[in-house]
Design a protein around this nucleic acid. Structure first.
Lengths: 195, 195
DNA sequence: TCCGTTTTAGAGCGAACGATCTAGAATGCT
DNA sequence: AGCATTCTAGATCGTTCGCTCTAAAACGGA
């Protein structure tokens, strides 16, 4: 019943995601958002609540379409290939990202998570999710002998996560392929068992 | 000549540094700054210029007292010890940092560097400085046989820098010692040559 | 068709923002 | 002592902020 919405909510949310992703939470104004989303301020508040709530939904959208999607696509690959492909995709994205937006999860981890327990939980859980994916890959790789078994899988997973986050940080100031690829290939050389 | 300043500039700059460090550039207001620095807005603008200029000086102060100081202290240690001590200090700081301020350089890299060429240059040069320190250590370690010579020192230095930055990101949401130490010890186990 | 509901557009709210201006107080130099 | 200069405190500038209000427009159901 009643008047239906004139705009597509997902399209608008994606536009909001791109704003927050590129400029962060504080530096993005509600007026910027409304303009990029193609709606008025009133419609924005009607459909998404306040600015903080919109950010939460935009971040959730990012995590689903970016992190979760990648993990579920790569899960079927062999352990080493899955990890390698994960880093390749991230590096490829980073190099091509002219806006230097980096990773919205990392951005949220630095801008909002430290002071905000709700975002702290969201970010923390997502990082644990990535770490768990790495841990599964490492454990499988250690079983089939393609990954060094010197250290426990849980530890190497934390190392992989750190390098991933580090690459994301580097990409925002030095997005040259040689820099990012250098870190990744150094990591893989040490991680793989020398046959 | 003329009336001298009533406040100590370095003390005030340190207070400003702590504000920006903890809350970032956008989220810190000039009124916050003036209050924490113990001076009025007019004095702030007189002594340090506008907000952006004050941030630049605060960041420079951070880099000198934090990054440069650490590197020059550790430079005299043996290669492996120097790298290990570098990470130990960062982890120790991160675990004890109740405010979860993280590393101001990393914060600047994410908040300001992507849109601002001046800060991009500052951040980029400082990261190159750290990377160069790591490269010197790795090269020396490879010469004396304590560090794996499988890969070029420049590559392993990029790996070390990435892990360092990654730990700094992790620390802002999951500052538990096991998490940070896990990543570091995994790295060192793979980096060292197995005697 | 008319009512109830929800949407739209746009004006406008009070508060906070970065930055500056005005006075007057405090110093060094001559 | 008198002057030029630079400091301090506090009010205040215009702008922008997040958010809400008003009123008209657009639909579904009775």
């Amino acid at each position: 019943m009643a008047r239906p919405r004139e705009f597509d909510e997902e399209t608008a949310l994606e536009a909001a995601m791109n704003c927050f992703w590129a400029q962060g939470f504080e530096a993005t104004s509600v007026r910027d958002l409304a303009e990029q989303m193609g709606i008025t301020g009133a419609s924005l508040y009607n459909a998404f609540g306040d600015k903080r709530s919109l950010y939460r939904q935009a971040l959730a959208h990012y995590l689903i379409t970016s992190v979760r999607d990648r993990v579920s696509r790569l899960e079927r690959l062999s352990p080493v290939s899955a990890i390698r492909a994960f880093f390749d995709e991230v590096i490829e994205r980073s190099v091509k990202d002219k806006q230097r937006r980096g990773c919205m999860l990392v951005n949220a981890a630095l801008e909002l998570a430290p002071y905000d327990t709700e975002f702290q939980k969201i970010v923390s859980e997502e990082m644990v999710f990535i770490e768990t994916f790495f841990r599964r890959c490492v454990a499988a790789g250690q079983r089939d002998g393609t990954i060094s078994a010197n250290r426990p899988a849980a530890e190497l997973a934390k190392l992989l996560l750190s390098v991933l986050l580090g690459i994301r940080v580097l990409a925002r100031t030095r997005p040259q392929r040689t820099v990012l690829e250098g870190a990744a290939s150094g990591l893989f050389a040490l991680l793989k068992t020398t046959p």
